[in-house]
Simulated assay, not measured.
Amino acid sequence: MNAPVKPDALGIGARPFAVPDPIIRFEQVGKTYAGRSRQQAVAALSGIDLTVPAGAIVGVIGRSGAGKSTLIRLVNGLEHATAGRILIEGEDVTALNEAGWRRRRREIGMIFQHFNLLSSRTVFDNVALPLEIAGTPKATIASKVEKLLALVGLADKSGRYPAELSGGQKQRVGIARALATDPKLLLCDEATSALDPETTQSILALLRQVNRELGITILLITHEIPVIKEICDRVAVIEGGRIVEEGETFAVFTNPQHPTTARFVEAVTGVEVPAHLADRIRPEARPGSEIVLRITFTGENATAPVISRLSSVVGVDVNILAGRIDAIAGKPFGSLLVSVPSRIPESEAVLGALRNLGLKAEVIGHVS
């Protein structure tokens, strides 16, 4: 039975409804680069198990040299695995020859860090290039390119050349070009790392729009944790060629299990201790001191009046030192730095009330 077709409001092409089955599955995938001797061989990836659900945005984050670029190049056949299997829509692509890869690549779009536009071709002609290569009729090309340029907000830049565009506009051309062949899968190779923060936000919003309105699965690699936080449904953390943690972005960010993940997410989920307070914090309580707590709020608690409830329930004054409320994968998340009396009855009452409210509290130290 064929999958039901989702009407495409943009007129770019109908697409089946996304299903929960993975569009990509890595099964114990390894990639080793040969050296002059067996001892000099370099293992870029080892034992990679990873699934990319159809219709999702999945991010792979890691530092330089962690193996993320090799991983994404395996998906479009620019590199070939030396161990394990990679399944795309159930097909074992590790067994494909070059003709098989040419067929498969027609359903995979690619967005690059440095845009990879042809300087001698106009915006229109850059977007049209994949359609020309596929032998699409000129009239069809013209209609398709116009719709794609409207989608990415460049309808008025059709006749411009890349040198006349800003970095964000060049990346929008790259996105339009990647969508030209109606791909089921979009690969993003550090697509925002060459852009300023404001432009990055606009490009991420466009990618989310493409995902939601066209139903295209997106796999992206990045070293920028804010990119993952902003648009990814799932995240995999890669280190030393291995996936060290993987899961839904909100769950991974709010409860990291691996030290590498914790270091990545601290910058976007934590709240820093103010400089004027940091030098005064001590590991042990002193007479008259207060406990400094970092309280984590998730879900409904992120916007609930928890502090006022806490004060009314235990009858203890809670001093707010710093805080932030943000969103991770579209879900609210908050972090608050507070101080409460160190005296045993009051401190135990506060910590007990926090537990009863389902909040995570971390003792930072004590301050006089």
Rank of each mutant, 00 (worst) to 15 (best):
A285T: 11
A285N: 08
R286F: 03
R286V: 15
R286T: 15
P287F: 12
G288C: 12
G288I: 14
S289E: 14
S289L: 14
S289G: 14
E290R: 14
I291N: 11
I291A: 15
I291T: 14
I291Y: 04
V292W: 13
L293N: 03
R294D: 06
I295N: 08
I295Y: 00
T296C: 06
T298Q: 06
T298D: 10
T298P: 05
T298S: 13
T298N: 09
G299D: 09
G299A: 10
G299P: 08
E300Y: 01
A302Y: 01
S308K: 11
S308P: 00
S308V: 00
S312R: 13
S312V: 00
S312T: 05
V313Q: 09
V314Y: 10
G315N: 11
V316W: 04
V316P: 01
D317C: 02
V318P: 00
V318C: 07
V318A: 03
N319H: 12
N319D: 12
I320H: 06
L321I: 15
L321H: 12
L321M: 12
L321N: 10
A322Y: 12
G323W: 10
G323F: 07
G323N: 10
I325H: 09
D326L: 09
D326M: 03
I328D: 04
A329S: 13
A329E: 14
K331E: 13
P332E: 04
L336Q: 08
L336H: 00
L337S: 03
L337P: 02
V338K: 03
S339E: 03
V340S: 04
V340M: 01
P341R: 10
P341I: 02
P341L: 06
R343W: 07
I344R: 10
P345A: 05
P345I: 01
